[in-house]
Design a protein around this nucleic acid. Structure first.
Lengths: 350, 350
DNA sequence: GCTCCTCGTCGAATCGATTCGATCCGCGCC
DNA sequence: GGCGCGGATCGAATCGATTCGACGAGGAGC
């Protein structure tokens, strides 16, 4: 029991050559059915469970594993409904190809780069993170591992799966502007993962790591010109709530008439902040989000938001990864977004 | 560019043997510092990014990948805060060992068994699922891949990481009983993944797939004797809400004075159902949960629940997996749970 | 001066399959 | 009866590293 039989042993037992046995396990039409039977019988007899994936991988040059980088700790990634949908879309496509998804915590520097070096990956997808200067990225590029980026990083040879963040936010901004809003503020997802929260100045903005964050700011400014931005430390409900309290707990004449949150999760936090401060939505303040995630705890409230096809994004990324793995070219993709007007936006007060 | 340099090429360029080059990359103390430098320089020159993980894996007999099975679609798994914490704990330990986590959708039969055969796994963890008759399980056992089960499956050679489900639920039941409750009902997580929801009869109960579900039923019955059980189709808030409506939307004299949900997620649904029906908690009905998950949408309400160390469970499972991979024996673990009394339980009405 | 030991390097076997081209056999056709 | 052809099987190279035991040189000890 301690020593596991090899394909060669099975072949010997079946009275065929290893090559034939291999063909038999691969279900090749080149082996006679009777021979295949004999090989399979021998395998059963010896307790051989099929070719060793490791050896097969080496020979084939493929491991059947694709890595997905999610931002910081997995725990936080899973709290983000967009990330979850993304991963779901990814696994859907990968699973159909018999390929597994390996989760990696990205944007953390050294440890992930270390892992990359030891773990056999056929391709990598930067799912919810993407720093141009991530050491893991250069590792992968040096290794010749195909890389797909979801909204970043932008780098040579990285296939980008994108959505029209700027246009989506611009549509939302137009919607607010048309109703008469002139004093709006934005709550942003982290510009980089260093725990910073607070108003975003010029310097901070220049150090922004993420494309989606940037494009969503630009979309609002396309309509309103400069818009004050308040950064959160992570894309989570309580971060949104904390930010919402800061922006909304001020005298009415200085309070924004509308808040654009860069994600639905943050928007949900703003709604909670508004409720806690006794402000009615949308009568006292309008709130817009981004993602079109279904947040179970919103109840009857229907958030005005920009709907993006998160699962489709995942599928497209996985498809691109599979194409690259098989040596096919993969085109960058830009998926459409659509404004969905709910019950959280209305005319400004007064 | 099309052909990637090998260790042998680097060795030749550095004027050393492949074995020495290998030692150099492994940071072995057996190579002279000067030699190591020379090898590294040659590698840099040739654009060699380090030993190919596939080849190294074959030789070592380890791939650096551990598989985790989560129930059905990943999408649902990620909605479950317990599963998320579990995975977080798992990655924490695996990451420290430089090992990656591969996500697999379990309990679905064929596809996962197929994947197992192609993907090199050092060990497998059944995280949120565990059927004794899962084909993937037999595949793994036949391959000699170490298997760790979290609350199941129970099978020969599977190291079990467990919590005291029965005792925890019994404590909760005692708490209710002590306050005078006599008419209680339970809302259960799925007994198997076939989309069934509704009252659980004897036949259905005999076909229960999951240990935790069973033990939590038994815990309640230890105190109350036979308890009506209502099964949900999946462990999700809206399932809990739907079940809650069924149980609570009846004349007061037939309504249970307390509902024990088998998870906090289901309990959250029950709270919503109660609110929708205009029932006060705990004045009209008490609600208890299980898990001790932090549910952001509960607001001020503090759910009475049985706290289990989900992350610790993940860590223990991963630790056991690593032990087994390295040929060390791994002991089964039973982790403690603790009743935490919140604001959702009180004396029965009347 | 000789032996022994240590440090550093090298050779060669090994991990377990896949795959391409060659070979062999039997049968059909001319 | 000989030639050719197609289907099944086999040999051998290959994937790219790791690792153990052997080997050689140089220094220390007696």
């Amino acid at each position: 029991m301690s020593i596991r039989p090899t394909l060669a042993a099975v072949a010997a037992r079946a009275g065929v050559s290893p090559s034939t046995a291999s063909l038999a396990f691969a279900d090749s039409p080149r082996v006679a059915p009777a021979t295949r039977e004999r090989v399979l019988a021998a395998a059963a007899l010896l307790g051989y469970a099929g070719p060793d994936p490791l050896a097969a991988s080496l020979r084939r040059g493929r491991s059947g594993v694709v890595g997905a980088f999610v931002g910081e700790r997995l725990l936080y990634a899973f709290r983000d409904p967009v990330a979850v949908q993304l991963l779901d879309g990814i696994t859907e496509v990968l699973g159909a190809h018999g390929v597994g998804l390996l989760l990696l915590a990205g944007d953390t520097g050294r440890p992930s780069a270390q892992q990359i070096a030891r773990i056999p990956l056929d391709a990598a997808i930067f799912a919810t993170c993407g720093l141009e200067d991530d050491p893991a990225l250069s590792q992968l590029r040096a290794r010749g591992v195909p890389v797909v980026g979801i909204e970043g990083p932008v780098a040579d040879g990285v296939v980008l799966i994108d959505i029209d963040d700027r246009r989506g936010t611009r549509d939302l901004a137009h919607h607010l502007h048309d109703m008469g809003h002139r004093r709006i503020e934005m709550i942003a997802m982290p510009l980089r993962l260093d725990g910073t929260r607070g108003p975003v100045g010029k310097a901070r903005r220049a150090r922004n790591h993420y494309r989606d964050t940037r494009h969503r700011m630009e979309g609002a400014e396309d309509v309103f010109g400069p818009v004050p931005v308040y950064e959160t430390a992570s894309n989570a409900v309580d971060e949104g709530e904390a930010a919402g309290r800061v922006l909304l707990d001020v005298p009415a004449h200085r309070r924004p008439t509308a808040v654009i949150a860069q994600s639905d999760v943050l928007a949900a936090g703003v709604l909670r902040a508004a409720a806690a401060l006794g402000l009615r939505v949308p009568e006292d303040v309008s709130v817009g989000g981004f993602d079109g995630a279904d947040l179970p705890w919103l109840g009857e409230t229907r958030l005005t938001t920009v709907v993006q096809p998160s699962d489709e994004k995942g599928r497209a990324a996985a498809q691109a990864a599979m194409d690259l793995v098989h040596g096919r070219p993969a085109e960058p993709v830009v998926l459409p977004v659509a404004l969905r007007i709910g019950t959280t936006t209305g005319p400004p007060p007064g």
